[in-house]
Design a protein around this nucleic acid. Structure first.
Ligand code: FES
Ligand code: FES
Lengths: 151, 151
DNA sequence: CCAGTCGCCGACTAAAATAATCGGACTTAG
DNA sequence: CTAAGTCCGATTATTTTAGTCGGCGACTGG
């Protein structure tokens, strides 16, 4: 449930890796792939997508590779995720206009789930790559309305 | 990304539906299935799972069906989700002990992602079925550390 | 006490999403 | 010129999810 795809994992690792080298250092696909045991061709596509989304910039030719397009503090985790996964939601019918969902007419979970989704988005958007690096720990838990349900 | 399975959707709808009738009223699978256009057989399994997890109680025989096992304020959204999806995490390697993940040795996203996951869990756990019913609106967004990244 | 309604369960198939691979074109430093 | 790199679409393999089927067991009302 709520699982990120491997491609997204790869994207996050790659971005984080680039962040760890400065903006000066240019890094290529193979280098990252070997560092994390990722199939090169697959990682290549991931990086290309990130490139197209403007999160990283590419340099062709020998000695080419990628560098972050901006400071790691200015790249949100959400932007990386969305770059790879596109804009999908927490539920099948993304709660958009064009839903073919059979339970639309009577759906009773549409609105509340959208709110939950927004909360999650807010959380992911509030966290930058730099943040990920820094606090591998730290709690960003929303304390509002948290007063102990739990089964 | 981060998508809940249809089964989970069905579970949430069903639970919400039961909550909307009181604990007095016993409701059967067919009734819910028809209300929301859900394939009966599939919904049946979902309800059985919820039963086994103790979220709802079943009544056999004719005039049988299900009722919530406790007040809708005491059933968290998280518990429903976990009842159906089991205990899976935001990433492939659930960040547990037994991961076969190839990038374990050097993984740089393990800890931060676990934190994000915990935040999400906290959010889902803090919301009850009753809450879902009430505020189809309302914001539970964590405002901490939210100061505008966004690409 | 028997018949029909309902829950219970596991195995099965179908469909879709994801992961990974392949083949070939384009770009550029040396 | 050429080798090292990015770029891109198409294809396949694998896994996950969605939905189906068939039979058993529990109960209740007649
Ligand atoms: S599940 Fe599709 S509209 Fe709610
Ligand atoms: S992705 Fe598997 S350990 Fe981090």
């Amino acid at each position: 449930m709520l699982k990120l795809s491997k491609k997204t994992d790869y994207a996050l690792m790659a971005v984080q890796y680039m962040a760890s080298k400065g903006t000066a250092r240019i890094v290529n696909t193979k280098e990252i792939a070997e560092e994390y045991n990722i199939p090169v061709e697959l990682l290549a596509k991931v990086l290309q997508k990130l490139g197209k989304k403007g999160l990283i910039v590419s340099q062709n030719g020998p000695k080419g590779g990628y560098v972050l397009a901006k400071s790691s503090t200015d790249i949100s985790v959400l932007s990386v995720i969305q770059a790879i996964e596109g804009h999908v939601g927490i539920t099948e019918c993304y709660h958009n206009e064009d839903s073919t969902c059979m339970q639309m007419p009577r759906c009773n979970i549409r609105t509340p789930l959208r709110n939950i989704q927004n909360s999650i988005y807010g959380l992911l958007d509030s966290m930058s790559i730099e943040d990920m690096k820094e606090f591998g720990s730290a709690t960003i838990v929303p304390q509002s309305r948290l007063n102990g349900h739990r089964t």
